[in-house]
Design a binder for these strands. Structure first.
Lengths: 202, 202, 202, 202
DNA sequence: GATGAATGAGTTTTCATTCAT
DNA sequence: AATGAATGAAAACTCATTCAT
């Protein structure tokens, strides 16, 4: 009886986590609008009342999922971009490969991200876009740094580089299959390599 | 009896065309699931019965939109890829720039394309995917041709190049604004340039 | 070119007959309310306009089917009941067997008859009921005649005999199968025999 | 806290029961297809959501009605058929009279039964038919028992006897009127009498 | 913390019928 | 005699959310 943190119910995780996990799975599988609150609570083994106890609305659930992704990605990018001793080209490659790997590692989040943004309520959408913009800016700063140092071509517009590359990243959810022939690492390496070649001085 | 073929009602276009146009606009604006059949018919100035006279279902309307995009893009790609006298690198750049321009020129279709695929019925989704695959294969063939000729790098996986680039193209709908600072041509030139640099021999 | 009665179209029967035939088949198969006018005209190979040219409404079509059945049955019953030289018990048996045979021979009409009466418009329903009543009265008269002659039991109420027997007849559509083990004649003989035993003096 | 379990609303019965009762009345009155869900919920004084909270579909409601009838009839037949000390002819007469009385006592169910079977979903129809078959078999067993004992005629086919008699029973709903001249008991007595005479040794 | 009955506005789709041609 | 586009009302069903317990 010493292990007091064990949940009282047989189910492993706490209720909010379970709800979030099932919601993520279902939103990725059939889309936000096509997933009913009923389906989520059934999958999580709780009732509607429980869901509305923890989350204000279905929309809140989605917002929470976005928050989780955004925090994770921002944190990782900051860690990589901040390695001041490392050459900028290497940092760009590392950051690019890393976002591919984590996107594939959280493929459900990736699918939801690019498909369901416009189903958030306007205010939440605004908040998410703002976070997303900060993330893009941090990434863009790497490109700009490389240009200032002369290792990247001057002709490319840094913001277009970011839009170009993140288009590719967001689309991973559309075609990547866990059971396909390519490992996350292989895709990451190739994508990072293409990004690097597309910007660096020949 | 001199009355021309102009429809008697004030609205210019024929009913199915009007329905398709309004549906495209609304699907792009608020998403397929969030657009009701009622909204479509009101926008088109007809009744629900008329819509169902021409289209079997809401899903059919979406399928028709996809068909229109797919036919257009395939046709343009075939025209460009078929210019045998032109060096492959030039054809790749032209094809890449062209798909960016037409995607921006039909931004509503582009938005719908990447967001609403999974809202099609399974069979229609299959049909669309098959068409899409054929398109990608034709594009990939250009990359492979360049590799055989030695103008493109051997290390890059042609299918990954295609997924990389079309991720970027499909995401145009997410960020491109008609009233923004960049013309379609500028984006097209930059995207094509990045694609070329990412694959060609340095 | 001598055979001028041949219909101009390739299809064998005239349009109204074809419509009636297909309507009968479909009403029997899936019920009146579940059969759409569209399905009928498609099955008959004509358009809706044609149907409404010949019949005032869907309801009219059903009424026509009822009329056909009622006329046929009345006519046959009159022929049998009118054989004054034949003993009444024999006439009853013959009439009973005959209505079983013709009900099985027109099983679609039989199915429609007992299922769809209440889907007719009130006035048409009234007309059909009146015809039906006349038919029942004629049948009941045979029972009464037998009672007057002393060959049938006095205790049985003639109207209940008719309701009893025609319940059985109308239900043929529910269980009888063309490809089943019993011929129409066998069922007719048994039903007529049971009817006779149920009323005659032991 | 003295408040009893009586529902807070003025309406006496629980919601599902009220829905079932109104549905039965309306289905009998105007047929299954002609009764809208809206009419049922209005009659029961609840909203559509409430109906769908308790019943999966309109079809489910009908199935429930069938289940109620089938359970009741089976139970009564078993009680009567099981009286081993009673002569088989008496048990047959009692069973026949009983099913007439209960059919008249639940005339709405009887009307629905024979009219709406084919409006059930295929699977539910199958289930109902299977129950119905079991009921018929139990009844047929009485006829067969009488034949083995020599009290019923050998010539009649037991299954045809059952189809003959239950045709009559199912049709009660078509003609019997509560306010008519005949009591349920009189009809029951006559029908049972006719059945007995139709099968027993003269 | 959690339940589950109930709401009410919404959804897509169907359909008999009309009518200009 | 026949077409087929168009109507308009109604159909069954769904769903996020609330609230008394």
């Amino acid at each position: 009886m010493a292990r007091s943190t064990t949940p009282p119910k047989a189910t492993a995780a706490a209720v909010p986590q379970r709800l979030l996990a099932e919601a993520t799975r279902l939103f990725a599988e059939r889309g936000y609008d096509r997933t009913s609150v009923q389906e989520i609570v059934e999958a999580a083994g709780v009732t509607k009342g429980a869901l509305y106890h923890y989350f204000g609305s279905k929309d809140d659930l989605l917002h929470e999922i976005y928050g989780r992704v955004l925090r994770l990605q921002m944190q990782r990018l900051e860690a990589i971009a901040g390695k001041e001793a490392t050459p900028v080209a290497e940092r760009l490659v590392e950051a690019a490969a890393d976002v591919v790997v984590t996107s594939i590692g959280n493929l459900d989040d990736t699918k939801i991200f690019f498909r369901s943004m416009h189903q958030l309520s306007p205010e939440k959408q605004k908040a998410v876009r703002a976070d997303r913009r900060r993330y893009h800016e941090k990434f863009r700063a790497l490109v700009e740094e490389g240009q200032r140092e002369g290792v990247f071509r001057q002709e490319v517009r840094p913001d277009l580089v970011v839009d170009f590359f993140f288009g590719a990243v967001h689309h991973l959810g559309t075609w990547y299959r866990e059971d396909g022939p390519l490992s996350a690492g292989q895709v990451a390496a190739d994508f990072a390599d293409m990004l690097l070649h597309s910007v660096r001085q020949p």
